[in-house]
Design a protein around this nucleic acid. Structure first.
Length: 878
DNA sequence: CGTCACACGC
DNA sequence: GACGTACGTGTGACGG
């Protein structure tokens, strides 16, 4: 195998890591964020590049040979923060534990050492990867040398070989020197030519290739001002060129063979990780210390295997029970068994015992108190076996989600470790994953499931206390938990679909798709895969030479907004858009939905994820029934396949009108907004009147469209950039729109400011029902992260309260239906809309009761409004 | 098998 | 001056 040398720019990566990560400190109070970030980067590099040789180069002294040329070199650079510099010695310890070579030299910068080692290795035929955050190093790129620049964070990188560099800058590597010489670099205090930025510099180099070329043909430079600037600052440009040129002939301490690297010793590295407090990394490198910690359960329990004659002791409440499923989809998954932990001990019931024991089943169905982990899953999976589960008083999964929706993982093992009860092994450690998934022998399984039950039992009081401490017990007991029961009914009930009508739509689509595909190939004069953005990009932009509007990191962007701009440039474009639209309908909605139809019921049984979104909304999977097309007529037709499950029934759709803006009006107490809703005005027209300062009659269609986009932006918390994208205007204009909006609604402005202030103080924001979302980045020193957190602070109470309201309505509506013995039932929730199926006889009654319940779900300072429609398919209920 | 680009809904 | 910008889910392509 070829030799591969990885060179890391130590200071640059440490600096990047320091600013990319929050100022973490370990339990000894020592800051470790830069070291931690560096380490994650290092592990990723080792994994991705598999180097045979490695070196990390550091800057050393303050003075470098560059200061002889230019005394103010790096003159503007701020002193390295002490929080970072104190981490540098740790970095050296870290590298020593990895046995990775390090070099630094007086008078030379890390860049120069890297350049020198790189050229040396290149001459020996090595492949070289340079890891840095400093674009200057791009000048070293060659056939053998690839430069990887950190992108966002520090583990994501953009890789530049000669081609990629050319694609990005249209420059050869050595021209990077000229580029920098012209544009300068404020962080190193390199002057360049004033008034010349990246754009101008690239233009000049495209024309004249080098700085020398520019000055040789100065009279050919377009623009009088630019010509003058260039002439006036010739010496600056030439000196800058020297400064940014990397010295590839620096003195170095090591010979190439001393850089050789095989692999690290997990235990040696593990010791250092342990000292630094990098617990998660310990597991990742698989050191023995971590192995011991992660693969061993510290729950020491005796699990008793239950027999068909289930003993009474096992069926005593209160109990923690765990229904163990091997598959994600609880509609179709078998049940592997059940763990029970109570005062009498820990028990395991096999599937045979569960299905065979009347005593066990009666106990499950009784009101005796049970604590579970993921109640909805337990209810639904048991229901498919014809079993009922009652008496559930607590759901640890739900509790964990409500306590912190920001945690991405609520697997029992994670919840347990976060709350410092005993360690539970992960599902993956027992079953393996993917294709390797296997169910262990019953003893192992029983032990594992029993441990889960024990931990669940311990978690219950802790989680209950945490909910209470956050004043979230109401949210849990009266909103989310009752909702879980309703959702379980909805999911189990399923939605009927007319497979035949889907199939015939699919056949139509396929015919049209074949036709459109042929037309596209005809127009392109070559057959290619239209679904491949890569191939499509090559056809459009290389072969047909259409103008490139936007690039993605892997090539040309061919997204709809780009294609729409090209629509009048070539007839192929509209065909491609059509092909995409129809292809999506066919693959996702026709084929996808057909695949989801249950063989047992002929219906579609989605699952609503109630413990996932950051805002409190539900999501829907397998299939997602919350994104069935509606906007475009061709797609909307899919809804014709959704039908009531019984003859002479109809579907009723009830949707909140502008629920989020009404919530905003309420929580911001903005008088104008409240007034508008009280009067029943068209809110987008109203906003247009305010923002554009015109009378109702003078609001043009375009004004209303723009106002609508602003309202949309406010509700979804998008940035000026986001708004500019959706309106096709500049960011500045979008910013002005938002500003004018906030001036028009001063109450909203006050709310936005106060909610951000509140978030800074508390570290979280809340909804009207006291749902919480933590915003750890609200005080971030990173502009991006902080801005994002600020927009989230403004948006989450709005969207989250909307979610609270419809959840409340679902509960009340369900109570009402039950109370009246109605046969009608709610099937789906789509964020601000409920889909109900009902016998025709009940429709008239529902049409009064449903809006009434929904509109009264929460008393706000503005009325809530619900629109109704019904029909024999979902399409007709519009 | 994981990641990317894309597209659908709110 | 650049950064990289509502929340979700599912699909096909692609590369390791």
């Amino acid at each position: 195998m070829n030799n591969r040398l990885v060179l890391i720019d130590g200071n640059s990566i440490a600096y990047r890591a320091f600013f990319a990560l929050p100022l973490l400190s370990n339990d000894k109070g020592v800051y470790t964020n830069a070291v931690y970030g560096f380490t994650t980067m290092l592990l990723k590099v080792l994994e991705n590049h598999n180097p045979s040789h490695m070196l990390v180069a550091f800057d050393k002294g303050k003075k470098t040979f560059r200061h002889e040329t230019y005394a103010s070199y790096k003159g503007t650079r701020q002193k390295t923060p002490s929080e970072l510099s104190e981490q540098l010695p740790m970095l050296h310890d870290l590298l020593a534990s990895f046995d990775i070579a390090v070099d630094q030299q007086d008078l030379y910068e890390a860049d120069d050492l890297i350049g020198t080692y790189a050229r040396l290795a290149e001459a020996e035929g090595y492949d070289i990867d340079i890891i840095t955050g400093d674009k200057d190093l791009l000048q070293l790129v060659s056939e053998k040398i690839t430069v990887h620049l950190t992108r966002k964070g520090i583990t994501e990188m953009d890789s530049y070989d000669i081609e990629a560099l050319y694609e990005r800058y249209a420059l050869q590597p050595e021209q990077i020197i000229d580029l920098k010489a012209l544009m300068g670099d404020s962080s190193d205090n390199i002057p360049g030519v004033p008034g010349v930025g990246e754009k101008t510099a690239l233009k000049l180099l495209a024309q004249f290739s080098t700085v020398a070329g520019v000055y040789d043909h100065l009279d050919e430079v377009s623009g009088k001002k630019l010509k003058e600037k260039l002439a006036d600052h010739r010496s600056d440009a030439e000196m800058s060129r020297k400064l940014v040129t990397i010295n590839t002939d620096a003195p170095i301490n090591k010979a190439l063979k001393e850089l050789s690297y095989a692999s690290f010793e997990p235990n040696k590295v593990g010791e250092v990780f342990k000292e630094f407090g990098f617990k998660s990394l310990l597991e990742r490198i698989g050191s023995e210390e971590a192995e011991e910690e992660s693969s061993q359960s510290d729950i020491d329990v005796e699990v008793e295997l239950l027999t068909a004659d289930v003993k009474k002791a096992a069926l005593q409440s209160p109990a923690a029970i765990v229904i163990e499923l091997p598959q994600e989809n609880y509609h179709t998954s078998p049940i592997l068994g059940m763990g029970i932990a109570n005062d009498n001990g820990v028990f395991f019931a096999s599937p045979e015992v569960i299905e065979g024991s009347k005593e066990l089943q009666d106990w499950l169905a009784s009101d005796d108190e049970k604590v579970v982990y993921h109640a909805k899953k337990a209810w639904v999976s048991l229901k498919w076996k014809g079993l009922s589960l009652n008496g559930v008083t607590f759901d640890a999964y739900m509790a964990s989600y409500l306590i912190n929706p920001g945690e991405t993982n609520h697997e029992l093992s994670d919840v347990a470790s976060r709350h410092a009860v005993g360690k539970v092994r992960t599902d993956e450690s027992i079953y393996g994953k993917g294709a390797k998934f296997t169910v262990p022998p019953v003893d192992t399984l029983a032990q594992f499931v029993g441990e889960k039950a024990v931990v669940l039992r311990e978690l219950h009081p802790l989680l209950a206390k945490e909910l209470k401490a956050r004043d979230m017990d109401m949210l849990f007991e009266e909103l989310e938990f009752p909702l879980a029961a309703i959702l379980s009914q909805m999911e189990f009930q399923g939605v009927d679909v007319n497979a035949e009508s889907l199939k015939s739509m699919g056949q139509e689509l396929e015919k049209t798709l074949a036709k459109v595909e042929a037309e596209i190939h005809e127009l392109a004069d070559v057959e290619f895969n239209i679904n491949s953005p890569k191939q499509l990009g090559e056809i459009l932009f290389d072969k047909l030479n259409l103008p490139v509007m936007k690039k993605t990191k892997t090539g040309y962007s061919t997204s709809a907004d780009v294609l729409e701009k090209l629509e009048d440039k070539h007839p192929i474009i509209e065909k491609i858009l059509l092909y995409r639209q129809l292809g999506k309908l066919n693959s996702t909605y026709i084929e996808g939905l057909l695949k989801s139809i249950s063989d047992k019921t002929g219906k579609i049984h989605t699952r609503f994820n109630q413990a996932l979104t950051q805002t409190g909304r539900l999501s829907s999977i397998d299939p997602n029934l919350q994104n069935i097309p509606i906007r475009l007529e061709e797609g909307r037709k899919i809804r014709k396949a959704f039908v009531p499950s019984e003859p002479d029934w109809v579907l009723l759709s009830a949707d909140y009108s502008q629920i989020e803006l009404r919530v905003l009006a309420h929580i911001s107490e903005d008088e104008k907004l409240i007034e508008a809703f009280k009067k029943g005005e068209d809110i987008h027209t109203q906003t247009a009147m305010e923002v554009f300062k015109v009378e109702a009659d003078d609001v043009t269609g375009n004004m209303r469209r723009q106002a609508k986009a602003v309202n949309f932006g406010i509700v979804y918390g998008i940035s000026d950039y986001g708004l500019s994208q959706s309106l096709g205007i500049t960011r500045k204009e979008a910013g002005q729109f938002i500003e004018r909006y906030l001036e028009s609604y001063p109450g909203v402005k006050r709310y936005m400011e106060s909610v951000v202030e509140q978030a800074r103080k508390d570290g979280y924001v809340t909804t009207l029902m006291n749902r919480r979302r933590y915003l750890p980045d609200i005080n971030s020193r990173q502009f991006n992260q902080r801005s994002f957190a600020e927009r989230t602070a403004m948006n989450t109470p709005i969207q989250g309260t909307g979610a609270d309201i419809i959840k409340q309505a679902m509960i009340r509506l369900n109570d009402e239906l039950k109370k009246k013995g109605a046969r009608a039932r709610v099937l789906l929730q789509v964020h601000d809309e409920l889909i109900i199926e009902t016998p025709k006889e009940e429709l008239a009654w529902l049409e009064t009761i449903v809006p009434s319940v929904m509109e009264q779900a929460m008393a706000l300072d503005v009325p809530l409004k619900v629109d109704l429609s019904s029909g024999s398919t979902w399409y007709d209920a519009k």
